[in-house]
Design a protein around this nucleic acid. Sequence first.
DNA 1: ATAGTCACTTTCCTTAAGGTAACGGATAGT
DNA 2: ACTATCCGTTACCTTAAGGAAAGTGACTAT
Lengths: 117, 117
Amino acid sequence: MGKLKCEPDPSIDKRLALRDAIELLSGKWKVCILSNLYHRGTMRFKDILETSKGITPKVLSKELQHLEDNLMITRTVNNTKPVTVSYALTDHAGETQPVISALILFGLSHRKKIKNK
Amino acid sequence: MGKLKCEPDPSIDKRLALRDAIELLSGKWKVCILSNLYHRGTMRFKDILETSKGITPKVLSKELQHLEDNLMITRTVNNTKPVTVSYALTDHAGETQPVISALILFGLSHRKKIKNK
DNA sequence: ATAGTCACTTTCCTTAAGGTAACGGATAGT
DNA sequence: ACTATCCGTTACCTTAAGGAAAGTGACTAT
C-alpha cells in the first residue's frame, strides 16, 4: 500500500474530537451499558446491574456518573419506596449510532481477517 | 427520550466485533500512529518516534507489534546501514476510515455539547 | 580506538482501571 | 425488633498501561 493522499495533518480540533470520542467508548462496560439502555429503554440501577453481567455496584455507579457527566444518559430519582433511580439515554447518545455501526462493521471484517492467520 | 426501537439484543458476533474494534483503537497511541502513517505514508521507526510526540521507544515498539499482529501495518527490514525498518498501513487498515470519520464527527458534536455546560 | 546511528530491549517505577467484600441510609413489611 | 430492598459508598487489593533511563548489537565514519 503506497501513500494514499497526502493531506496536511488533521486539525487539532479533529484530533481532540477523535481522542474524546474513543475515550468515551473505551473500557470494559460503557458500550455494554449504553447498548442495554438502547435496546431496553429506561432502566433502574438494579436492572443494569443484572443485565451487565459481572459488573459490581461500585463500578456501575462510577460508569453511570461518567456517562451522565458526558451527557449520554439522564438520572432520575423516582418517588418510590424504596427509592429507585431510572437511567435513560439522552438524544445526544443517539449520535453514537453511526459510530457504533461503523465499529461493528469494521470489527466483523477484522475478525474474519484475523481468523485466517 | 423514550424507548427507541425494541430490537432483540445484538447478536453475540456483533458484540464481539464491537469490543474488538474498540480495543484496537483504545489506548494513548494507536490512533496517533495510524494517523501519522496515513498522512505521511511509509515511515521508519525513528520517524514515528519523532512525530508521535512523547512516546518512548519501548512503548512504540509494543504498539507497532500489536498493530502488526492485527494486520493493520506491515513491517519491513531494509537492507541499509545502519539497519532501518519501514512501517506502512495495510489495505485492511483502510477499512478503519469510516470508523475514524464517524468518531471525529461524533467527537466534534460532543465537545460542543460539553462546552455548553 | 572512539564515537555515532538505528532499532530496539531491559529494568524499574507510577498511575489508573477494575475486582472483592463489606457497610450505610432510607424505607417498608411482619 | 428484625429482616428485606434499593442505591449506592468505603476500604483494600491486583493487574495492566504507560513513562524514565540506561543498555545492547550491528554497523559506519573519523
